[in-house]
């Protein structure tokens, strides 16, 4: 029983990264129609930036959770203005290739500057140690990651459903023509939405910094799982991305515990099963898929 609790928390903590990053991916896909292959690289940049900030300016985790997403938002805006926007009218494949190329570029630049063996990172002492729950010592940091990311997902969800901006973004996502016909300037929201999506990937990177290896390659496998998450949740679906993220985290953890060799395959088995039963994903709608 105690093991099951432990695996659950571990799975949900791992799922937090997937959920946050997939949320960004889903929003970008929804509004821009861009399958952002560079999302893994942005996640990596988030972690690397946090490590560099700590090393050079002693900005620790707390401030990094604010500063890094802001920096990456700015970076996302630049990328969208300089590159992505020119290909929006063309086949989605063009932007897929663009972001793929961007990934290679970013990964190699980071390798050049910081090498390949990774950067050190220390978390605040408050988050060291364990928290006793039902007789099981759960790492405080994992609980923090879990609570923090659920909070962020909730805020994003509230913004999306309860505010005017959210309504416009959702309208632009789901019925862009209709939104335009109603006089909404859909194009105006494209750049900030892209930046916001990138910032979410960066935030996931900052959270990962204290307990994942911070290397230029850390996003390479991450992005593949992330695509699985988005497919499971439903392309462009905000709730789907979050639920998919946590679900994949859990599958990974229980897979590692009970069928270690098949842990990663299980994720894709789940993906295949979901696509067979619901081609648009758990929360996707047929039209948007």
């Amino acid at each position: 029983m105690s093991d099951v609790l432990q695996y659950t928390v571990q799975g949900l903590a791992a799922g937090s990264f997937y959920a946050l990053a997939a949320l960004g991916l889903a929003i970008i896909f929804g509004v821009l129609g861009v399958v952002n292959f560079a999302h893994g690289a942005f996640y990596m940049l988030g972690a690397v930036t946090a490590a560099v900030l700590l090393d050079t300016t002693e900005i620790g985790l707390w401030w990094a959770l604010l500063v890094v997403p802001l920096l990456l938002f700015g970076f996302g805006v630049v990328v969208e203005r300089l590159l992505v926007q020119w290909l929006l009218r063309l086949d989605p494949l063009y932007n897929f290739l663009l972001t793929f190329g961007l990934t290679l570029l970013l990964v190699d630049l980071v390798k050049r500057k910081y090498g390949v063996s990774g950067l050190p990172y220390e978390r605040p002492e408050v988050l060291d140690g364990r928290f006793e729950l039902l007789g099981v010592g759960l790492p405080k940091y994992q609980l923090f990651v879990l609570i923090f990311s659920i909070a962020v997902c909730l805020v994003v969800w509230l913004v999306m459903t309860r505010t005017r901006i959210g309504m416009i973004v959702r309208a632009s996502t789901e019925r862009p023509e209709l939104a335009r016909a109603l006089g909404i300037n859909v194009g105006r929201w494209v750049t900030p939405v892209f930046g916001f999506g990138v910032a979410l990937a960066g935030l996931a990177g900052v959270l990962a910094a204290p307990f994942r290896a911070i290397t230029a390659d850390m996003g390479n496998d991450f992005i593949i799982i992330l695509f699985a998450v988005v497919v499971i949740g439903g392309l462009g679906s905000i709730v789907g991305a979050v639920v998919g993220g946590f679900l994949v985290g859990l599958v990974e953890a229980f897979g590692q515990a009970y069928a270690p060799t098949y842990a990663q395959i299980l994720i894709f088995v789940l993906m295949a099963a979901v696509v067979l039963v619901r081609p648009a994903g758990l929360f996707g709608r047929e039209e948007t898929a």
Partner: peptide, 20 residues
Amino acid sequence: TIATPFPNDNFATFLTKAAS
């Protein structure tokens, strides 16, 4: 002995299991 995928970034559960 526990075989893990390669490469892999999440070992939390493997370690919990090894420590059990």
